[in-house]
Simulated scan of single mutants.
Amino acid sequence: MAFHWTAIPRFIPQLLAGAQLTLLITLAAMALGIAIGAAMAAGRVSRFRVLRLLAGLYVEFIRNTPALLQIFILFFGMPSLGLRMSAVTAGSIALGLNASAYLAEIFRAGLNGVPAGSREAAIALSFSRLHMLAYVTTPLAMRAAWPAFCNLVISILLASSLLSAISVYELTGITNDISTKTFLTFEVYSIAALFYVALNIAVSLLLALTGRLLFPPQSR
């Protein structure tokens, strides 16, 4: 069996465009996920039982259904209710909702991990509830949650490949299209795999740098 690697360079611009869309979808999904996840985390730790129950039901429903099914519900199911979205929009929202359930638990764990002594010190210094949240609870919670947050970003980036099932031309969608038209299956999927590796390494390095800037090492 002969491989035709020399044909691959002419498809690099298309793969780069797909990789760019993959990053944009990941960014949009994480932005939505952070907003909803923070709200759900607040609900999960609320002193109001109804809020805890509603947030818990949301988190459990999202976490116990496949991401692909969530994508199909938004893209194929919502038009039945009169709400039509583009494939990119529906897919980004679906991934954002999926990320929000996991972020809710990540943020909740971070909040629960804040030492009681830190809160007591803030109260002793006459911090208001808002100031304590802004200057004590949130920074300490985010420091604890950052590694899990970074792992989720990578998971959502990889999960964006599921959008190829609704004809979104992100990296996997572009790869499928090129493979179908050229039959260079092994070659083009191998290059796409390298693209994913490069994207993951680049995003991981960026997140690591951001973590160092936001959460400098604590002196002992």
Rank of each mutant, 00 (worst) to 15 (best):
F3Y: 14
F3D: 03
F3I: 12
H4R: 12
T6D: 15
L16G: 09
G18Y: 00
A19S: 15
L21R: 02
L21T: 00
L23K: 08
T26M: 13
T26P: 12
A31V: 12
I34E: 02
A35S: 15
A39W: 10
M40K: 14
M40D: 02
L54G: 01
A55I: 03
A55C: 06
G56T: 03
L57Q: 08
F61E: 05
N64H: 11
T65V: 13
P66L: 00
P66A: 00
A67L: 07
L68H: 04
L68R: 01
Q70F: 05
F72P: 09
I73D: 05
L74P: 10
F75R: 01
F75C: 07
F76E: 08
S80E: 13
L83H: 09
S86P: 01
T89A: 13
G91H: 04
G91M: 02
A94W: 00
A94T: 04
S100E: 01
A104S: 14
E105W: 02
I106V: 10
F107S: 00
R108N: 03
G110Y: 03
N112I: 11
N112H: 12
G113P: 13
S118N: 03
R119F: 09
E120P: 09
I123R: 10
R129L: 07
R129V: 13
M132A: 15
L133Q: 13
Y135G: 07
P139F: 04
P139L: 05
A141M: 03
A141H: 02
M142T: 08
R143D: 12
P147T: 07
A148T: 12
V153G: 08
V153T: 13
L157V: 12
S160D: 09
L163H: 11
I166H: 09
V168A: 12
Y169R: 13
Y169P: 09
E170A: 04
T172V: 15
T172Y: 13
T175W: 03
N176T: 14
K181I: 09
T182N: 11
L184V: 10
E187Q: 06
E187H: 06
Y189C: 10
A192C: 10
A192V: 00
F195E: 00
F195L: 01
V197E: 00
V197D: 00
A198E: 02
L199T: 01
A202F: 05
A202C: 05
A202E: 06
V203T: 04
V203F: 00
L206H: 02
L206Y: 06
T210I: 09
T210S: 14
G211F: 00
L213D: 03
L214M: 09
P217K: 08
Q218V: 11
R220P: 14
